[in-house]
Design a protein around this nucleic acid. Structure first.
Lengths: 357, 357
DNA sequence: CATCAAATGAGTTGCGTACCTCAAAACACC
DNA sequence: GGTGTTTTGAGGTACGCAACTCATTTGATG
């Protein structure tokens, strides 16, 4: 009826006795320090495995003495998503200090490869771990690899650099996110046929490009009645996005769906609202006439738009989860603990009005 | 440019010096032990606050010596959702033992108030924390309160007993979950009008009742073209669910939506498939003729149904997250640490084919 | 002022590990 | 067998706190 999930754990001393060696030797094996004969190493490792020994996290942490330093390298500027990550890290202040973890935020222009690489290089040697919202560029890749070589644990956040030797990526699969957006637009449009617009920050950004790719994939294979218009590039700016979209809506009267890949949501919403006003003025109305609008991220603005019914769904990667996962992964890496991959995996959340967090 | 989120933290000794008292007195204040004048208490607390002192978790954990014991009281039987929770706890085994946490699973008939209450009473005094999938019943409530009085930290899991003095609830808002299901069915049905069926385990279960309530709320206010049929009670059994649903589908030819509130998914899917076969045989076909099917939880079965297109969306509460959150909350409560409420909040996930985890 | 209880100081021990030193032992090589 | 090198043992200290004991001081009360 009762089943225990955690076997009793021995201490270092017990292992030393088991293996017939001294504490010092076990310690050497445990930390891969030199000066132990291969044969002895095996004996010790056997004893460790046999007893499924695990160092007591608390004792280890206490014994090492010094605090750990982590750096979060994030975009400068007023990106609300990044601000949320910062805010959640702030909320963790107590948790962090109780574990003697120092987390520092470093703002830099992540869209400028040279600047980002320089920021990263400057960290070398001073930090136990670095989380970075990275641009995928050769010099950035090199900077990441240098950090790794210097002994730091490196985690990419939100946007990955798969070709680097970073230890972990904390973020979503953007192709799947785009597919999800596509499926939502397609299904919510229903039986209507017509055109679908896409507005992104820039197709040069890896995450945006991947989302568009996934979106088009689903559109092409599953919703043949919908035709996708060429992508508008709004540079994540409100004004520009509004103008581009307004013009497009004017040109094509039969737009039934809209996918906003990045930011600039304020402008997108404005253009959509203006169109709705015109439609109402000219007599057409009702749910059937509305444009299905799917975007990304839950912010104060998108929350309002969802509640008003202007926006139909937001694809979201929980920024709080990302912040905490990045810290936990860095900590686990630094401690040499395994990562709870299931826990640290970032999910693609579909947020509609009724499951707003 | 760089901003530190974690101020340097002092030790107990520093606080004692600051407050002009001895270590022993700080210790007394810190642990609410008697024998300190109110005035002195304030002086010490001021010093603690002034320096934002926090005991080093590792040191505290190490000093207390003994391991902590947690119990998970879960339904007996083969509920896949509960099995997943168990599996995720198993995955955490290393994490748990590195922290000297003992987690025991205790199976009991949670639908039998007396049995559940007895199981809970039996734990009194032996455990530092208890997580329980609870039935809301007076005797269960009393048992929970007794546990709390005995000094254990109690967390309700999945299903809450709000009237008890449990310390925390780890689970979703089931009314909001029902609303979300309603919005999905309504939106995915599109312009069609017709009837919507609901099949639940039992309306006596608190979570099921709440979901149905939320679902009907949305249906009534937002989708007047859809009429909701009386709730079928399938007792979460496959056969019974299939029979009930098959009969209903036969009786009403214009069913366009279906909400499965609990389990019994296998049977529900079978009944739906049979209907689809018949429809195809009689010439009608295409997406328009399909019944929109929304259910709960991502299991091996629902995953398959989503991929096949039989099921359109699953409302899910991440069982892995629930398991880990329950452990973390119990641990934080036992340590007297604050709970990261944002982290431990369970979200209502909408899972469709393209964002399957 | 004496008496007693309450408040406080001072100190000890132990938790399990990391990290260090120094000496002893084992081994390899000529 | 002697030399030099590698491997191992033994032991110590420190980490920051919990939990405890016992002596001492303070304050109130009669």
């Amino acid at each position: 009826m009762a089943e225990t999930l955690s076997p009793t754990v021995l201490t270092l001393k017990d292992i030393a006795r088991e293996a017939g060696v001294s504490l010092a030797t076990v310690d050497r094996v445990l930390h891969n320090r030199p000066g132990v004969r291969p044969d002895t190493v095996r004996r010790v490792k056997d004893a460790i495995a046999r007893n499924s020994f695990q160092p007591h996290v608390a004792a280890a942490e206490l014994a090492r003495g010094r605090a750990r330093r982590f750096a979060f390298v994030m975009p400068s500027g007023s990106n609300p998503f990044m601000q949320q990550i910062e805010a959640y890290l702030g909320e963790m202040a107590g948790w962090l200090s109780a574990r003697r973890l120092n987390v520092e935020m470093i703002a830099t222009d992540v869209f400028e490869p040279a600047a980002l690489a320089a920021s990263l290089e400057a960290l070398s040697g001073d930090y136990d771990g670095v989380a970075v919202v990275a641009l995928d560029h050769p010099s950035v890749r090199a900077a990441i690899n240098d950090l790794v070589d210097a002994g730091a644990k490196v985690v990419t956040l939100v946007s990955d650099v798969p070709s680097s030797r970073r230890h972990h990526y904390v973020g979503i699969d953007n192709i799947a996110a785009g597919r999800t957006a596509g499926a939502l637009v397609g299904r919510l449009v229903g039986q209507r046929s017509g055109k679908v617009a896409i507005i992104a920050g820039s197709q040069g950004l890896r995450d945006h490009a991947e989302r568009i790719f996934g979106f088009n994939q689903v559109m092409a294979t599953e919703f043949p009645d919908l035709s996708v218009l060429p992508v508008l590039e709004g540079r994540d700016e409100d004004d520009r996005s509004e103008q581009l979209l307004a013009r497009l809506l004017g040109k094509h009267g039969d737009i039934v769906g809209l996918y906003n890949v990045g930011a600039g949501t304020q402008g997108v919403a404005k253009a959509l609202n203006d169109k709705a006003q015109n439609a109402k003025a000219s007599g057409a109305a009702g749910r059937d006439k509305q444009v299905v609008f799917v975007g990304h991220d839950v912010t104060a603005l998108t929350r309002r738009l969802l509640l008003q019914g202007v926006m139909d769904a937001a694809i979201s990667q929980n920024p709080g989860h990302e912040a905490r996962a990045a810290v936990r992964v860095l900590l686990a890496l630094a401690r040499g603990e395994p990562i709870l991959s299931e826990q640290e995996k970032i999910r693609i959340d579909i947020v509609m009005r009724d499951n707003l967090p």
